[in-house]
Design a protein around this nucleic acid. Structure first.
Length: 282
DNA sequence: ATGGCTGTTATCCG
DNA sequence: CCGGATAACAGCCA
């Protein structure tokens, strides 16, 4: 579930619930998911710390804390493919794949992750080299073309590169290229200013729509459902059927909503790409 | 039930 | 530097 929009919705959910809370006890249940050093170091550092801020950078969640001794700490989390974060009652049983938990006076914060691709870092190095946010006002068609340089990598694959732009993942890369009318196989360096303008516009449109949709939904942060987002099993969000959230993603064999051509699934860099062969010609 | 698929990214190699 | 392949892993679905 976790590309930029899902992380943004989660951060908006967590921030008011975590801010000001003091961690009475931090527990690392899965040491392999914790960086940069030992589980003991993390639990010791976070013990007694107070949450001051929760924000997002790309697909990362950033926790600003103040230790018991008054020094400031930064914690950076990534959900990987299956990570989830939520608060639950103190008495509730821990999930099978708990990674880290923070006990507060009246609730417990849980980071769980079945596949274990997620991480919790006790410093900010993971976000140091990220590219600009998709909504960064400094993005212009000229800048995008410049950053793409003369790369021959297909644009779909390049959009997944977090050094170019932070937060775009497999779903929204396909969705944005479809909206922009650009073939996922186009070499990045061959996009013109017109393509770049359309792509920036499409990225912002697709991402902001997903944030809006997620913000209106009744979220089920503990999961279940189809595993996509935190949308749980509800089949409708404000009248929008869940299956219609995407125009091309996971719609192979179905008709393009714009032109009716059959959506195709291809594989690029070992990941599924979906596109309309009619609207997105090479 | 077995095999193929899944939202990510760090790292290694040529 | 660039780009491709792989590994890390559990669950779901046909």
């Amino acid at each position: 579930m976790p590309e930029l929009p899902e992380v943004e919705v989660l951060v908006r959910h967590l921030a008011p619930r975590l801010q000001g809370r003091r961690i009475l006890e931090a527990t690392v249940h899965r040491a392999r998911s914790v960086r940069p050093q030992s589980a003991e170091q993390m639990t010791e550092a976070l013990q007694g710390a107070t949450l001051e801020s929760v924000s997002r950078r790309g697909k990362y969640l950033c926790f600003g804390l103040r230790s018991g001794q008054g020094t400031s700490l930064s914690c950076v989390g990534h959900l990987g493919m299956t990570g989830r974060m939520y608060l639950q009652p103190l008495m509730a049983p821990l999930p099978k794949h708990a990674v880290v938990t923070w006990r507060f006076a009246d609730a417990r914060f849980v980071f769980e992750d079945a596949r274990g691709f997620g991480r919790l870092n006790l410093e900010t190095t993971p976000i140091a080299a990220l590219g600009p946010e998709p909504f960064d006002p400094s993005w212009t068609p000229e800048r995008l073309v410049e950053r793409l340089g003369n790369s021959r990598q297909p644009i779909k694959v390049k959009l997944l590169d977090q050094h170019l732009m932070a937060g775009v993942g497999n779903i929204y890369a396909s969705e944005a290229l479809h909206q922009a009318g650009i073939s996922p196989r186009r070499p990045s360096g061959r996009l013109g200013l017109k393509d770049a303008a359309a792509l920036l516009q499409a990225l912002q449109s697709v991402l902001s729509r997903a944030i809006e949709l997620g913000s209106r939904a009744t979220l089920d942060f503990k999961g279940g459902g189809d595993g996509l987002f935190y949308y749980g099993s509800s089949s409708e969000l404000e009248g929008v059927p869940v299956v219609e959230r995407f125009d091309v993603y996971d719609r192979a064999g179905e008709p393009c909503r714009r032109c009716g051509a059959v959506i195709r699934r291809t594989v690029q860099a070992q990941r599924s790409t979906y596109h309309c062969p009619q609207c997105q010609r090479r």
